[in-house]
C-alpha cells in the first residue's frame, strides 16, 4: 500500500485504491451478500415482504437436503465435475509433457496455435459444434457406422456428451498450468532418473508429477470450478437423465420464480466448490497465491 503511494503519489494511488474497492464491494461483495440474504428468507408475495413471516431461516437450504432428486443431482454434479477434471488431466498431461520437454520451438508454436484457435470462438458456439458432432444422425455416428464399428447409431447425448464437451471446453485451463510447471523441470533430472534404471512410469510418478504438482492442482481447481458452474454444456448436450445442478438453479430463478430457493441452491454450490478447492490445495500443499500465478 505504501509502495503504491510512493510510486504514484497520493492522488493517483487513492484513485486506484478506490477503484479496487468499488470493484470488490460492488461486483463481488454486494451480490454475494444479497444472495445470502435472499437464500435465508422465504419466498413471499410482494405484499408480505417485510411482514411478520419475513424472517431468516435455513428452510431453503434444508429443502435441498430433503428433496431426493435435487440432492442426487447436486451430488452427481460434484463427482461428475471431479470426473471432468480427471479426464481433462489425463488428456492434457501427455500433451503438456510433450510440449514442455520434447517439442521443438516450431512444433510448440504450432501446437499452442492449434489449441488456442478454438477458444477464439464463443463457448456456446463451441458447445453447439459438439451438439452437431454428437447428434443422433450426426457425423460421428455416420463415420462409425460406415467404418462398421457400430451397427446402429448411438445416442451420445447425455452423460457422455456432457463430459466430452466439458473436457474439450476446459483443456486450456488444465494444459497451460501443467505445461508451465513441466517446462521448468530440468531435463537432466529426467535423464538422471532414466540412467538410474527408472521406467517411464516411475519417472513420471516420482520426478515429473511431483515437480508439476502445483500446476496440476491449479488445473484441477480451474477445471472443477468451471465444470461445476457450467450451464451451456449440460443444457445443450445433456438428456433428462443427466441434469446438472446449475440447471436446477436456473429453473428456480426463471421458471419456478422462487429466487430465494435459487439463491440458496447457488450458495450451497458455491460453498461446496470452495471446500473442494481448499481441500485439493491442501492435499497438493499448494497455496492460493501459487494458483493465482
Amino acid at each position: 500500500m505504501r509502495d503504491l503511494y510512493g510510486r504514484f503519489g497520493p492522488w493517483l494511488a487513492t484513485v486506484f485504491l478506490s477503484l479496487v474497492f468499488i470493484w470488490l464491494a460492488g461486483m463481488v461483495l454486494a451480490p454475494n451478500l444479497m444472495m445470502i440474504d435472499y437464500a435465508l428468507r422465504p419466498n413471499l408475495p410482494p405484499a408480505a415482504i417485510g411482514g411478520p413471516d419475513d424472517s431468516y431461516s435455513l428452510d431453503n437450504i434444508l429443502y435441498l437436503a430433503g428433496e431426493p432428486t435435487h440432492r442426487a443431482i447436486f451430488l452427481k454434479t460434484i463427482w461428475a465435475s471431479a470426473l471432468v477434471a480427471l479426464v481433462t488431466f489425463l488428456v492434457c498431461y501427455p500433451v503438456a509433457y510433450w510440449m514442455a520437454q520434447h517439442a521443438t520451438t516450431g512444433q510448440l508454436s504450432l501446437a499452442l496455435l492449434l489449441i488456442i484457435i478454438p477458444f477464439f470462438i464463443n463457448e456456446v458456439l463451441r458447445t453447439l459444434a459438439w451438439f452437431i458432432i454428437l447428434a443422433y444422425r450426426g457425423p460421428l455416428n455416420a463415420v462409425l457406422t460406415n467404418l462398421g464399428l457400430i451397427d446402429a447409431p448411438i445416442r451420445w447425448q447425455g452423460d457422455g456428451g456432457v463430459l466430452a464437451a466439458m473436457v474439450y471446453a476446459y483443456i486450456l485451463f488444465m494444459l497451460l498450468p501443467i505445461y508451465n510447471a513441466i517446462e521448468s523441470l530440468e531435463k537432466a533430472q529426467i535423464e538422471a532418473a532414466r540412467d538410474l534404471g527408472a521406467s517411464s512410469w516411475r519417472i513420471h510418478t516420482r520426478v515429473v508429477i511431483p515437480h508439476a504438482k502445483a500446476g496440476i492442482a491449479t488445473g484441477f481447481v480451474f477445471t472443477f470450478m468451471l465444470a461445476a458452474g457450467s450451464y451451456v454444456a449440460p443444457a445443450l448436450l445433456g438428456s433428462p437423465g443427466s441434469r446438472w445442478f446449475t440447471e436446477i438453479i436456473y429453473n428456480w430463478f426463471f421458471e419456478g420464480g422462487d429466487w430465494n430457493r435459487g439463491a440458496a441452491y447457488a450458495l450451497v454450490l458455491l460453498v461446496l466448490c470452495l471446500a473442494v478447492v481448499l481441500i485439493t490445495l491442501r492435499i497438493a500443499r499448494v497455496n492460493l497465491a501459487d494458483v493465482a500465478k
Binding site: A188, E191, A192, D195, L196, V207
Partner: peptide, 10 residues
C-alpha cells in the same frame, strides 16, 4: 551411471 554437470539431484 552418469553424474551430470548440474548434478540433477531430485
Amino acid at each position: 551411471a552418469m553424474i551430470f554437470q548440474s548434478l540433477a539431484l531430485f
